[in-house]
Design a protein around this nucleic acid. Sequence first.
DNA 1: ACATTTTGCGAGAACGCTCTCGCAATTTTC
DNA 2: GAAAATTGCGAGAGCGTTCTCGCAAAATGT
Lengths: 348, 348
Amino acid sequence: MSKPTINDVATAAGVSRATASRALAGYGRVSESTVSRVQSAAHKIGYQPNEIARSMRAGKTRTIGLVIIANFTNVFFDRATKVIVDTARDLGYQVLIYNTNEDVRLEREAIETLTQKRVDGLIVVPSTDEGHEHLIALTKMSTPLVIIDRQLSGVSATTITTNDSMSCEAAVDEAVSQGHQRMGFLIATPTVTGFQSATPVLQNSAIESRVRGFVAGTSKYKHVRAEWLFSEESPEVALAAVRNLLDSENAPTILFTSNNDMVLAALKVTGERGLTLGKDISLVTVDDSPWLDAIVPGITSIQRPVDQLAELAVRKLAEQMEEKKFVVEDIQLPTKLITRGSIAQLNE
Amino acid sequence: MSKPTINDVATAAGVSRATASRALAGYGRVSESTVSRVQSAAHKIGYQPNEIARSMRAGKTRTIGLVIIANFTNVFFDRATKVIVDTARDLGYQVLIYNTNEDVRLEREAIETLTQKRVDGLIVVPSTDEGHEHLIALTKMSTPLVIIDRQLSGVSATTITTNDSMSCEAAVDEAVSQGHQRMGFLIATPTVTGFQSATPVLQNSAIESRVRGFVAGTSKYKHVRAEWLFSEESPEVALAAVRNLLDSENAPTILFTSNNDMVLAALKVTGERGLTLGKDISLVTVDDSPWLDAIVPGITSIQRPVDQLAELAVRKLAEQMEEKKFVVEDIQLPTKLITRGSIAQLNE
DNA sequence: ACATTTTGCGAGAACGCTCTCGCAATTTTC
DNA sequence: GAAAATTGCGAGAGCGTTCTCGCAAAATGT
């Protein structure tokens, strides 16, 4: 009735369990004739090795846990997930995925569940900047861990992030060179759904890095006036915020948005107002996405090396898992400003 | 050194392993005093139950396998993944994810690996229409299985798809009512990377359903001329195909695209040609996406109930896994035509 | 022909857990 | 106060592997 075990293979082949195991795995000493006898017996009865039992015995599961944020439209994480899964497969690992919606409680739950399922290692996109004892606990137990997308103070684990500030500053430079002086920055601040009440500012290092870049850019130019807008990641709130900004007197001539959700909000509102992109209003966003290139005019964006980041995360994790050596690294991958037609030329 | 086991808890609490187990799980007969003693001991030494051992013993893993296609921009599958993961979590299951890139070989590998990891059930997006013995084998072994997005002939498993033809036909009706007579249909046909050489037509039921709807629509009207274009899902090929189509004499006034990749290709080319969407050229696509609504004009699209489909898939699977009863169902969820501004009004 | 090495294979333990069973101690019953 | 029932707990088996160890048979050496 149930799945055949290696015992069934053994009796079918007329050998002991130990011999069957050897014959199939091809390690110790078995005669060629028994090997083929066992193999055909295994094939015949449809034997599928029980990986759970193997994991039990071996103390390893060849499974890694992925704790990530699969929110709405954020291509970055979806793409990262794909690449992580594929790279892991290539390296012989499977991926147990867990979705925290920027919710620390879910993150804690994820870590706990995955730990209990005895994953060999974890790739985590941490949700907020505080309360990461559970991650620290992981490192204490020397569980292989790679943190991606956001830096965490106090957690000594390999961290891979993208250097957003670099390109953000470059984007401001570009805008200035096109004659823009009034700039609006639409920054998404993830709402904390955990215990502490939502604190309004900069929840994670990714956003912080972008803001830092924008600030570095604008502060270089005396005549540039920057308008900051920190908005929850809910569509309605973002929309209202952008409407407000565009309706103010001396409204910005260019908008910088911090992620895909915000650029959608910005686009929606400029559309409502009948503004033509790249002429009446300019736009730059972070995180490249195929549709940014398909529409007219294309939207200038800051491209983060998702694939590279994701693959690197898995490889670094694999190193930790296999060699048991702990080099805590802090890797920052460069970003790139992809110029398309969404920045209007204001110089006469 | 290694993780504490229940034996460690037992000795720390001064009881036997059996009692410790009972105290923690709260089943048999244990005195209250020992329960609290064991609990505090467990907490003190940081005991984390080993789910592998539990799975081994129980013969269940509370893990489901997800075999899906995580290709480029197809929001549908990404969104489905998220909802599946979340729903599974709510029901107490974790998700092992495997990505086949429309590659039957990877699909086979996925099924095998996941079976060996003894997942309790599987949700599968099958890659092509032929060679699905591995899925049939699953049903033979009565492994809980839910197939989503595509129907498969010969596999008797619960299947959940969306009724695309319905809305596709409605979309054609809408186009006709706006005065369109020359229509172009851009159908993506996934390239088969497996053994058999790429056969040029309709690899799966999802696409087939869309084509059927379009055909049903166009054939109702004598004066409507339909131009069909079957293109590989590679960007370059798609682009070239669309260019060809638009450059032909009597080029279509409206394009219908079968998925996100194709609508991007269509947009790109109409952009190159300087055609204004909703005026010089019209466009309708399948699978709704936030950006379709954000740009000007919005792109009319056929919305498939992803969330509903994904959640239903998990629930149906859970039923199978828990009640061990096998009702083979064939569920088709309705789609919806979301009208935005991308269909030009040609009637004077 | 006998001593030694090699070969092939089986017995059995261990991984960490749960659960059945049995037994002593306690409590209840009449 | 003796019989019966109940309670609390430990011993041990088993889930499916792998791997060490030992032993007989075969092959090799002198």
